[in-house]
Design a protein around this nucleic acid. Structure first.
Length: 209
DNA sequence: ACATTAAGTGATT
DNA sequence: AATCACTTAATGT
């Protein structure tokens, strides 16, 4: 695959060339953990395809889905962490098979001052992410759990590229930092409202959702 | 047929 | 909305 095509509108030619010659492509499979909470950030992933799931982990090991990183994007957290060799506050898991450019943290400083397009790319992804996190906070603070669940299912379906989700109630509860029984009940309600169909380990979203 | 795991339910806080 | 205790249903061996 050619990187030049993919990123020609984002980065200047000189930077593209540098990326092609000095940055390696990594591949991970669905479910692989890219970065565990507490680990030191060593590389900045720049997604070529696939989706990364970024989640927060609390002391008891419970997780809370923060956001997804889609292709042509990078993770804002790693930018901020890597500058000062800070341990990661989050966990990154491959939601699907993922191919990404592993940009070594060492080049960050140089690239930031040397390439305007790199700088604006970094700034843009940080800003977009902050906006999204604000949305997430709004949800936590003001939205009821059932509304959050609907939003979660839609996002999940988009990530999976399908209206059929292979997921258990338990997993949903974990990702939303809720409990299985509560999720089960809310899902049941949605099923009664003809918004979706429930199976064992599977949920079919209907267009009414 | 049996064990295991997912999902459903009522009561309690 | 969370937790507990328990039931029922689906799935694997």
């Amino acid at each position: 695959m050619n990187l030049a095509e993919k990123f020609k509108n984002i980065f200047e030619p000189e930077l593209l060339q540098l990326i092609e010659s000095s940055v390696s492509i990594s591949t991970v499979r669905e479910g692989d953990v890219i970065l565990e909470a507490g680990q030191i950030v060593r590389i900045i992933p720049l997604l070529l395809n696939g989706i990364l799931k970024i989640a927060r982990i609390d002391d008891s090991g419970k997780e809370l889905l923060l956001y997804y990183v889609h292709s042509n994007e990078s993770c804002a957290m790693t930018f901020t962490c890597c500058m000062q060799q800070y341990p990661s506050e989050i966990r990154a898991v491959a939601e699907t098979d993922v191919e990404f450019l592993a940009i070594p943290i060492g080049v960050m400083d140089e690239w930031l001052s040397r390439f305007p397009t790199w700088k604006s790319f970094v700034m843009r992804t940080i800003r977009n992410r902050l906006d999204e996190l604000l949305d997430t906070i709004d949800q936590l603070a003001f939205q009821k759990l059932d509304e959050r669940l609907v939003r979660y299912l839609k996002e999940k379906s988009r990530a999976a590229g399908s209206s059929l989700l292979n997921i258990s109630h338990e997993e949903i509860a974990t990702e939303m930092a809720s409990s299985r029984e509560v999720i089960s009940r809310l899902l049941k309600k949605l099923e009664n409202d003809k918004k979706l169909l429930l199976y064992r380990n599977q949920i079919r979203l209907l267009k009414e959702l």
